[in-house]
């Protein structure tokens, strides 16, 4: 694994790998995301209790799952960066952070929008929404720490430590918020039951998750490339690339 990964610690190799992977990701993301959205939002059967308003789960659930996933991925790349001193890993981390933050925001927004027909109010301190809100704060913390440093190499390391602190904390936050919620459960709040999802709802949901994941991956690859270029601007290989692009 390490032998295979090692060459990509060099930014130039990572850049070229991204260049090769990007088209595949863009195409598959486009197909699966469109399929998931169209199937989920237009053709999947509507819920017998909630009617069509439940269809927002085809956006809410994927973004909620992937917001956590992106944070873990961020922490993993921070860890790789800190332990093996891989600079590209820090770039990957910071390329992921805004994507994760946006997806977290989408999850929050759709959650609130779903809450309106469900609970009759835009916001309730539901356990999952609260966790999601705290996750957004964690993302913003990492991003603003990174942005505060002039020296981006130092910034990467600092933000990396914070990402790892956050990921250690994430399960504790999740657990504590769940627990706090059951403790304070008011009369107006009803938690979602977790009924077994019918297969004709499950399939479009799974495809939506995959689709969003691929979309995020494609954006991530592009952002990573940009980050590499921005940081390595002085290197000859980047200069050559720029010259080539200008020539066209």
């Amino acid at each position: 694994m390490w032998k295979w990964l090692h060459p990509y610690a060099k930014t130039q190799n990572a850049y070229q790998l991204c260049e090769r992977l990007l088209p595949w990701f863009v195409v598959s993301a486009f197909i699966s995301f469109t399929l998931g959205m169209v199937w989920g939002l237009l053709f999947a059967p509507s819920d017998y209790q909630q009617g069509d308003s439940f269809r927002i789960i085809y956006i809410h659930v994927p973004s909620a799952i992937l917001s956590m996933g992106a944070y873990s991925a961020m922490a993993i790349s921070a860890f790789i960066g800190l332990v093996w001193q891989v600079r590209t890993a820090f770039m990957a981390m910071i390329a992921l952070a805004p994507i994760g933050a946006v997806v977290t925001f989408i999850a929050l927004f759709t959650g609130a929008a779903w809450g309106k027909p469900m609970w009759g109010t835009w916001w309730v301190w539901d356990a999952r929404l609260t966790s999601e809100l705290i996750l957004l704060f964690l993302y913003l913390g990492v991003i603003s720490l990174y942005a505060s440093f002039e020296d981006k190499q130092q910034a990467g390391k600092a933000a990396g430590v914070m990402a790892i602190v956050g990921v250690v904390n994430l399960p504790i936050i999740h657990f504590s918020v769940e627990w706090w919620n059951t403790l304070h459960q008011g009369a107006s709040i009803t938690k979602f039951d977790k009924p077994s999802v019918a297969p004709d709802m499950l399939w479009p949901l799974l495809i939506s998750i995959l689709g969003l994941a691929l979309v995020m991956a494609a954006i991530f690859i592009r952002r990573l490339q940009n980050e590499i270029l921005r940081r390595e601007l002085h290197r000859p290989w980047v200069q050559a690339l720029v010259a080539e692009a200008k020539g066209k």
């Binding site: 913390g141 505060s148 440093f149 600092a158 504790i172 936050i173 504590s176």
Partner: peptide, 23 residues
């Protein structure tokens, strides 16, 4: 420790830490 090198670390410190202290 992370915000030491920054001149204006005060508010950032709170932004970083408050979410972590929630549990």
């Amino acid at each position: 420790g992370l915000t030491l090198g920054l001149n204006r670390g005060g508010v950032l410190l709170a932004l970083l830490l408050l979410p972590v202290f929630i549990p």
